[in-house]
Design a protein around this nucleic acid. Structure first.
Lengths: 237, 237
DNA sequence: CGTGTGCTTGAGTGAGGTCAATACCTGTGG
DNA sequence: CCACAGGTATTGACCTCACTCAAGCACACG
């Protein structure tokens, strides 16, 4: 069922999704962009008629409310598509900033819809669905009020995404600041620090500034989902 | 620019979007379903190869985390499309429940992609973009921690959507319980009550159970966005 | 070697969560 | 018609968690 909607992605994109970056076949016809850390891919209210495929590096996508508060809506790594939220109007309602030196491929929408692109509008639908699901996850998490859960969720989620693109989920270097994490999770910067310190004390992680080692993935996972850790289950029941 | 992606919706759907419910031309070829309050359109992990257009009534879409907590991801009214989050996999990762007697039109995806439908896959992309933006809004709001803002946002947002489909934004009857609102906004049920009582005391709204009157839309709007209300601005600066 | 930016830690406070009791509204059955 | 039950809404008392304010540290940069 639903064979029309979920047919496998074309090779080029599928490969990207799984970590290799052999995008040359597409890239030759498209523009490849390199962003330095801190520079902006697009800003709020920019007119854009393209989406962006991340080849390597990392981006944050954020929005500002009218009162000037910031919310980070997502972090994007290799294989992710950014800019989808501009599709309905053609106007970006968010801003994308490189956290690192980042390589991007522009994909013009007109060529997607005219079938001149390596992936079709059906693939676009599929990718938007993925984005939608991820946003739902974010909403789920934000409504779980406790800080430790949010942070555990963030770490495990991030680790999982690293696995998908072929990096070690156990030990990695975060591209974003503590402030970014706080804005993403809807917490205060200090709470992020404190909670990370707490995790380290409990032996769940070890950390040195941006460098993170996950020592007890299971426990973090259980924290994130709200399950009790098996060995503590009897304490709370 | 982006004329390919944002061409106007076909008449039938466009009309629905603006409140009239002349869907017959499409409905004849499709299944129309009536749901009673409390019954389920689809459940988590159902295989679905269709999306649903709401003709009238109201739905809530919610998810359960592994630990059994509930998060309501959205309320859907006439003209809204539900079921988009199942697109990437064909498996629903949420559950849709009628809050009221609700009329639904099923739209098979296969017929959309084969061009046999009154709207095309490009329209689908557009609608998904709208969904995505709405989810972003939800995430923005959930990260604003104060309860009064969340509730003000909820009320104004709901009123705006009523306007779009041709109902009065000033006075309406909520289809959902306080518990639903609480689960949507990531608050405790009691906080919703207290905050609503507070709004009433301040003369922003009047209420009688589900029946709500918005008395000072401006003030609510300012509360929601975090701006100070003009007449209070000097107090906080 | 100072300066800035990011990170960490402490102390105090308040918004909102939890628990609990009560009121209200609707439908059912005697 | 009234009694009762179950779902819904409201209000109060208490307490905890995370925010705020504040100060100190560490690393990178010119």
């Amino acid at each position: 069922m639903l064979n029309v909607a979920i047919k496998p992605l074309p090779a080029t994109v599928a490969e990207i999704r799984h970590g290799s970056c052999h995008l040359r076949s597409v890239a030759d016809r498209e523009e490849n962009v390199i962003l330095r850390a801190g520079s902006c891919l697009y800003r709020m209210n920019d007119e854009i008629d393209e989406v962006y495929l991340v080849n390597s590096g990392a981006l944050k996508v954020h929005r500002f409310s009218e009162s000037g508060e910031q919310q980070i809506l997502g972090f994007y790594l290799a294989g992710d598509i950014v800019g989808l939220d501009a599709l309905p109007t053609g106007i970006a309602c968010s801003e994308a900033v490189a956290l690192d030196t980042t390589s991007i491929t522009r994909i013009r929408l007109s060529s997607v819809f005219e079938g001149r692109e390596a992936f079709s509008s059906q693939d676009l639908v599929r990718l938007m669905g993925v984005s939608l699901t991820r946003e739902n996850d974010l909403a789920m998490m934000l409504s779980q009020r406790t800080a430790d859960r949010r942070l555990a969720w963030f770490l495990t989620e991030y680790a999982n995404r690293l696995t998908v693109i072929g990096f070690s989920p156990k030990e990695f270097s975060l591209p974003m600041t503590r402030t970014d994490i706080a804005l993403y999770l809807g917490l205060a910067l200090e709470t992020v620090c404190r909670e990370l310190a707490g995790f380290e004390e409990q032996g769940l992680i070890s950390k040195d500034r941006r460098r993170i080692k996950l020592l007890d993935m299971d426990a973090l996972q259980h924290l994130a989902t709200g399950d009790e850790h098996p060995c503590f289950a009897e304490l709370t029941h």
